[in-house]
Nucleic acid binder design. Structure first.
Length: 845
RNA sequence: GCCCGGGUGGCGGAAUUGGCAGACGCGCAGGACUCAAAAUCCUGUAAUCGCAAGGUUGUGUGGGUUCAACUCCCACCCCGGGCACCA
C-alpha cells in the first residue's frame, strides 16, 4: 500500500479523540506548555501561524512520552478592533463573526493533528470568562492600583473618533487624511510603575532569550539620579520653584539654562510674571496639539521660547539662569523639567548653539592635564569635574555621590530613581471589549468629598476616585449590552454611552442614581491572565481553583512571536505579580521558559498578506501533501527562531522522505534481530550490526537533546541520516525500523501511528515510552584521526578509540605520505606535535 | 542616533562551542526504468588548476591572537527587527 495521508490522518484523529489520549493523566511531573493564543481573524490561518503550535505540539508529545503529565491547551483572544470594524461595516454583531471565525480556526487546527484538550478551550469574550477579567480589575481597583486621569488620545477632528496609532499614516488620519490632534479624555490608568522594580528584578529568575530580557529591561528603563530644586525669581522676589531630574549631577556647574516641558505647571503658575506670556502660550498650545509622533518627527529642529522676566537659581553656585519652554523635554518623564548642560549633553548642545546660549565645560576627559580640549560637540562621557568649586578634581562618579550628600544635607533635593516605563492607560472608547465593573454615583462622591462616611464603607480605590463605586463581586459579570449601532458616539465616548437604559443604573452602595462607566478595557485585558483561565474551566464556567493553579503554574514553556516582547509579556507579568500579592496565585512569575518563533515569509520573501496575494493556506497543503508533511517541513525548514521563506520544493522533499520511510516497511526482515540467528552471522554482518546499533543510539541521543533545545531542524536531519543508513540494508531489522518510527512520532504523529500500530499492535505510539539510548553504545571503536602538518589536513587514518599520543605519533610518522610531506618541506625538523585525543594530530615543522 | 539579531555553495541551512567547513534537504547535471513524460532509483554537485593522483583558494571586508579561527579580539561594510529627544 502506498502512503496516503488523506486516508490515515482523519482516521487517527478520530481514534485519538475516542481514546482521549491527550487528557492529562494526573500522573508524573507536570509540564504546562502554552501557545500564545490567537486572535481569530476573518482571514483564517496561513501556514505561518502553526509554526509555533507545531513546535509546542512536538514538545508536548515528546514530554508525554517521557512520563510527564502534560497540559497543552488552546483558546481565543477574541475582543478587539477588527471584529468591531467588521461589525461597523456589515452591521453584524461581533459575537457572530467571532464565533464563525473561531469555528474556522478550530477546523484548520484540527486538521494539523494537535494534542489540544478542547475541554479546556477558552474565549475571552465569553461573559463567564470576562467575569474574571473584571474581578481582577476590581481587586486592583480595591487595592488602590487604579486611578482616573485625563489622558490624551489621538483624535481625528473630522471623523470625530479616537484613533489607534496604527490608524495613522505620516501622523495623519488614515481614513480622511486630516491632521490629528491630542484630545484629553478621562481614562482609567493602572499603576504599573508600582511594580517596576519587581518587574525588573525578577527578570533574573527567568529562562528567557536574552534579547527579550534586554528589551524588557530597556522598556522599564531604570535610571538612578537626583532631584535638584531650583528657586525661581522675578527681578524682585521668589515666585516659585522647579524640580529637575538629572542622572548627571556631576555636570551641575555647567548648567547654563533650564528647560521645562510645554505641559509643565510652572508656565501657567507664573503667568503674571512672564513678560512674553502671549508668545509662550502660543508655543505651548501648538506643542500640546502635536501627537508624540509628530513631536518626534520634528525632533531634529529643536524649538523653544524663553520665559522672559523669570530666572532660576542654581543652588550650587547661586547663579541665575534663564528658563525655556521647549517640546524636546517630555512632560511625562522625570519632573518634566531639566537642567541644561550644553557642554555635556547633545540635545542641550544643539539647543544652545541655535539660541546662542553659553556653553560651559565642567567635565574634563584628560584631567589633571592643565588644559581641557576645546569642544566641537558635547562631551557626554564621565571624566573629572573641573571649575566646580569644592568638587573640582573629583571623578564624575565620586562627584555625583558627594553632590547628592550636599543636596540632602541642605534639603535642596536628593537621590531619585526614575523609570521610563509609564503607568498603563487601561481604557478604550470602543464597544467590543470588557465593560468596567464600576458606576459613578454623585451622592457617594459628595459624601467622600465632604468626608461624611463611615470608616470601611469605601474601598481604597473608591476613596481615590470619589464617586466611582465598585460593582460587588457577586454581581459579576457586567455583561456587554446589545447595541444597534457600533459607530463611536462622536464625542469620543464609546458606543455604549448611547444606550441610556444600560448606562442609567442604581448605586450598589447607596441605591441612589448612578451611571455606568462606558469605556471598555483594551484588548490586552483578557490576554493578561488567560493561561490561568485554562486551569479554571469547569464545563461552561470558570472556577478560581487554587489547587489546580498551585499544581500547574508557572507555565513551563511559553512559545510565541517576538512582537510581544514588551507589551503582552510585561502586562501579563504585572498582573501575575499583583495576583501573587493578593495570594490568588503562588509564585512570582507566570512564564518560566520562553521561546520565540520566527516568521514564515511567503515564497517571494515578503510577508504573507492578502495585499500581495501570496498567502499559503495550510488547508491546501494538507490536501495535497498531508498534515504530517506540513508539520515535518515547518520543523525542518530552518532554525526555529529565524524568519524564513516558504518553499514548496522543500515541502515536496519532506513528502519524498516520508514516502521512502513508508516503503522501507516492505523490506523489514520478519525474523531479524533474533538472537538465534546471531551464531550463523558472518563476522562482517556482525560488525555491520554493531555499527547500526551505535548509529541508532547516537540518533536517539541527538534527537532527544535537539528537541529539548528547540533545534528541530537538526533533529529531523538526524532522523534522515538514520533512515538513509537503514535503507542501505538489504533487509531491515524490525526493531531498528520501529525505533525510527518512534523517534519520528512527535513530528509526524499520524504517519507514525499508522506504521506503529500496523507493526506492533493495539497501543498508540504516543503513549509509548520514549526510547532510551545506551551511553556505552554511542561511540565506534575506531575513528578517523585527522593528520595535519602545520595546521593543514594531509591525511586521515582509522585508529582505535583512546589511542595515546605516543602510539599515534608512531603510526603517523611512519606514513609514507607524511614522511614525504615532511621531506618536501625541507629540513624536516619537527618543532612540536599537538595531539587532541580522539580527534587530530598536528605536526608543526 | 541607540539597542538587539544576522552575513557560510545556485538556495534553506549544518559544524561536538577553538580542532576535517559545507551534515541534511532543495535545486541542477548525467544515467537507469519508460514508446514518451511524470514518479521512482543510482551517480555527481563550493570555486579554481589538472587527463588524473593531487594542489591552491574559500565562511561580508581589512587587520590581530593561536600549532589550529565560521568560532576569540580590534576596526569597518551590508541586511533584518525593535526603540526613539528618557535628561
Amino acid at each position: 500500500m502506498m502512503y496516503n495521508p488523506q486516508k490515515i490522518e482523519r482516521k487517527w484523529q478520530r481514534v485519538w479523540e475516542k481514546e482521549k489520549i491527550y487528557k492529562s493523566r494526573g500522573k508524573g511531573k507536570k509540564f504546562y506548555v502554552l501557545d500564545m493564543f490567537p486572535y481569530p481573524s476573518g482571514e483564517g490561518l496561513h501556514v505561518g501561524h502553526p509554526r509555533g503550535y507545531i513546535a509546542t505540539d512536538v514538545v508536548a508529545r515528546f514530554k508525554m512520552r517521557r512520563g510527564f503529565d502534560v497540559l497543552h491547551p488552546m483558546g481565543w483572544d477574541a475582543f478587539g478592533l477588527p471584529a468591531e470594524n467588521y461589525a461597523l461595516a456589515n452591521n453584524i454583531h461581533p459575537k457572530i463573526s467571532v464565533s464563525k471565525n473561531i469555528k474556522r480556526f478550530k477546523e484548520q487546527m484540527n486538521k494539523i493533528g494537535f494534542t489540544y484538550d478542547w475541554n479546556k478551550e477558552i474565549n475571552t469574550t465569553d461573559p463567564q470568562y470576562y467575569k474574571w477579567t473584571q474581578w481582577i480589575f476590581l481587586k486592583m481597583f480595591e487595592s488602590g492600583l487604579v486611578y482616573g486621569s485625563e489622558e490624551p488620545i489621538v483624535w481625528c477632528p473630522s471623523c470625530k473618533t479616537g484613533l489607534a496609532l496604527e490608524d495613522l499614516e505620516d501622523g495623519k488620519c488614515e481614513r480622511c487624511g486630516s491632521e490629528v490632534e491630542k484630545k484629553p479624555l478621562r481614562q482609567w490608568v493602572l499603576k504599573m510603575t508600582a511594580y517596576a522594580e519587581k518587574l525588573l528584578n525578577d527578570l533574573k529568575s527567568l529562562d528567557w532569550p536574552q534579547p527579550i530580557i534586554d528589551q524588557q529591561r530597556n522598556w522599564i528603563g531604570k535610571s538612578e539620579g537626583a532631584i535638584i530644586k531650583f528657586v525661581v525669581r522675578s527681578s524682585k522676589s521668589v515666585v516659585g520653584e522647579v524640580e529637575v531630574f538629572t542622572t548627571r549631577l556631576d555636570t551641575i556647574f555647567g548648567c547654563t539654562y533650564l528647560v521645562v516641558a510645554p505641559e509643565h505647571l510652572l508656565v501657567k503658575n507664573l503667568k503674571s510674571n512672564i513678560k512674553n506670556y502671549d508668545s509662550v502660550q502660543k508655543y505651548v498650545n501648538q506643542a500640546q496639539k502635536k501627537t508624540d509622533l509628530a513631536r518626534t518627527d520634528l525632533a531634529k529642529d529643536k524649538t523653544g521660547v524663553e520665559l522672559k522676566g523669570v530666572k532660576a537659581r542654581n543652588p550650587f553656585n547661586n547663579e541665575e539662569v534663564p528658563i525655556f519652554v521647549a517640546d524636546y523635554v517630555l512632560g511625562s518623564y522625570g519632573t518634566g523639567a531639566v537642567m541644561a548642560v550644553p557642554a555635556h549633553d547633545e540635545r542641550d548642545w544643539e539647543f544652545a548653539k541655535k539660541y546662542k546660549l553659553p556653553i560651559r565645560m565642567v567635565i574634563c576627559p584628560n584631567y589633571p592635564e592643565p588644559k581641557c580640549p576645546v569642544l566641537h560637540k558635547a562631551y557626554v562621557d564621565d571624566g573629572h569635574v573641573v571649575d566646580s568649586q569644592k568638587f573640582t578634581g573629583l571623578t564624575s562618579q565620586k562627584a555625583r555621590e558627594e553632590m547628592v550628600k550636599w543636596l540632602e544635607k541642605n534639603k535642596l533635593g536628593g537621590k531619585k530613581i526614575n523609570y521610563k516605563m509609564r503607568d498603563w492607560v487601561f481604557a478604550r472608547q470602543r464597544y467590543w471589549g470588557e465593560p468596567f465593573p464600576l458606576v459613578y454615583c454623585q451622592s457617594c462622591a459628595d459624601r467622600i468629598n465632604n468626608k461624611k462616611y463611615k470608616k470601611g464603607e469605601f474601598t481604597k480605590g473608591e476613596l481615590m476616585n470619589p464617586g466611582w463605586i465598585q460593582i460587588p463581586e457577586k454581581s459579576l459579570p457586567v455583561k456587554l449590552p446589545e447595541v444597534k449601532q457600533y459607530e463611536p458616539s462622536g464625542t469620543g465616548e464609546s458606543p455604549l454611552a448611547n444606550i441610556k437604559d444600560w448606562v442609567t443604573t442604581k448605586c450598589p452602595k447607596c441605591n441612589g442614581h448612578a451611571y455606568r462607566e462606558t469605556n471598555t478595557m483594551p484588548q490586552w485585558a483578557g490576554s493578561n491572565w488567560y493561561y490561568i483561565a485554562y486551569l479554571m474551566k469547569r464545563g461552561g464556567k470558570y472556577v478560581w481553583d487554587k489547587k489546580e493553579i498551585k499544581k500547574w503554574l508557572p507555565v513551563d514553556l511559553y512559545v510565541g512571536g517576538v512582537e510581544h516582547a514588551t507589551r503582552h509579556l510585561l502586562y501579563a507579568r504585572f498582573w501575575y505579580k499583583f495576583l501573587y500579592d493578593i495570594k490568588a496565585v503562588f509564585n512570582k512569575e507566570p512564564f518560566q521558559k520562553l521561546m520565540n518563533q520566527g516568521l514564515i515569509l511567503a515564497e517571494d520573501g515578503r510577508k504573507m498578506s492578502k495585499r500581495w496575494k501570496n498567502v499559503i493556506n495550510p488547508d491546501d497543503i494538507i490536501k495535497n501533501f498531508g498534515a504530517d508533511t506540513l508539520r515535518l517541513y515547518e520543523m525542518f525548514m530552518g532554525p526555529f527562531i529565524q524568519s524564513i521563506a516558504w518553499s514548496t520544493d522543500g515541502l515536496r522533499g519532506m513528502k519524498r522522505f516520508l514516502d521512502r520511510v513508508w516503503k522501507m516497511r516492505d523490506r523489514i526482515n520478519p525474523s531479524a534481530g533474533a538472537s538465534t540467528e546471531l551464531s550463523r552471522m558472518s563476522s562482517g554482518r556482525e560488525a555491520r550490526n554493531k555499527k547500526l546499533e551505535i548509529f541508532i543510539n547516537q540518533t536517539i541521543k541527538k534527537v532527544t537533546e535537539d528537541i529539548e533545545g528547540f533545534k528541530f531542524n537538526t533533529a529531523v536531519s538526524a532522523l534522515m541520516v538514520l533512515a538513509n543508513e537503514l535503507e542501505k540494508e538489504s533487509s531491515i531489522d524490525k526493531k531498528h525500523y520501529l525505533t525510527l518510527v518512534s523517534l519520528l512520532s512527535p513530528f509526524v504523529p499520524h504517519f507514525s501511528e499508522e506504521l506503529w500500530r500496523g507493526l506492533k499492535g493495539k497501543n498508540s505510539i504516543h503513549l509509548e515510552k520514549w526510547p532510551d539510548y545506551n551511553p556505552k553504545l554511542i561511540y565506534f571503536d575506531e575513528f578517523d584521526l585527522v593528520v595535519q602538518i602545520n595546521g593543514k589536513v594531509r591525511d586521515k587514518i582509522s585508529v582505535s578509540k583512546g589511542i595515546s599520543q605516543k602510539e599515534a605519533e608512531e603510526v603517523v610518522l611512519n606514513l609514507d605520505k607524511i614522511k614525504q610531506f615532511i621531506g618536501l618541506l625541507g629540513s624536516s625538523k619537527i618543532k612540536k606535535i599537538i595531539f587532541v585525543p580522539n580527534r587530530l594530530i598536528n605536526i608543526v615543522i
